[in-house]
Design a protein around this nucleic acid. Structure first.
Lengths: 138, 138
DNA sequence: GTAACTGCAAAATATTTGCATCCTT
DNA sequence: AAGGATGCAAATATTTTGCAGTTAC
């Protein structure tokens, strides 16, 4: 596993540092999306706040993770599928936010349906965020 | 028009004050969603930052406006349709954010399709945010 | 007149930037 | 060894809270 993590970083031309490896590992361990604060907590604040900001930004730029738009406008991040490459994200999947436990799921296998937009609108990317009650809270 | 605005406030048990009326008017004049900063600018900073925060929050609570989740996690607000009432939002419509001009449209008449969620997930509200090129920028 | 709203000050929180030091390659 | 990454300090931006004065009803 540790090797897989390092592999991913190398593949994206990033040097393998402890903080990057640890943060990327967190994303792989977690089935759900993570906020900046989650990462601070799960790493016992071993890394500087700033390092986390910069690491997340780097990962987003490289297409390793993506941000998830949320109704309360907090910032969430989740792993991208493998097909995502730098600059060309493939975010066309559904997110689900549980109203009770707050967990955000990336439902990679649920595809976003075609939406009929009005004349003149050309979509490039479509995000779907559903909220409700998740399988653990029902 | 001025009267309509006052009507809406009264209907929601809000006292009619200058700032509330002006901000609500802005939303009615604008075909697109507004950010906190937009409101500051369009009112020539005649109102305190704090008043704008509180007014927006009040409007959201009353179901007069709703927040829009955006990919860059900035906070946007737009008018709710009439059917929205306090606590029970009816946000099931599509938003479109133009990658070029940044305008966010509320496409009230485009309905959100049914999404097949995995077993155990019960949706309560579904937000769809498409981004791409709008009718003015094409 | 009273309750609610506003504006100011300030606190709390979140994010960004510069720079010296340290680590990866 | 060299370039890039980290951590610290501090600047900047954003949001919240308390309170006194003002306004709507």
């Amino acid at each position: 596993m540790k090797n897989d993590i390092a592999e991913i970083l190398k593949r994206n031309q990033l040097s393998v540092t402890e903080s990057r490896a640890k943060i990327l590992e967190l994303f792989h361990e977690s089935r759900s999306a993570l906020a900046h604060a989650d990462i601070e907590n799960k790493t016992d604040e071993s890394y500087d706040r700033v390092t986390i900001y910069r690491t997340l930004q780097t990962f987003v730029e490289k297409g390793i993770i993506h941000t998830i738009p949320t109704a309360d406008n907090s910032v969430l991040y989740a792993l991208c599928k493998d097909e995502c490459t730098q600059g060309k994200h493939n975010d066309n999947h559904v997110h689900f936010i549980c109203d009770i436990c707050g967990t955000t799921y990336c439902l990679d296998h649920i595809t976003v349906p075609e939406i009929n937009l009005p004349k003149g609108f050309t979509p490039h990317c479509t995000d779907v965020v559903a909220s409700g009650i998740c399988k653990n809270c029902k």
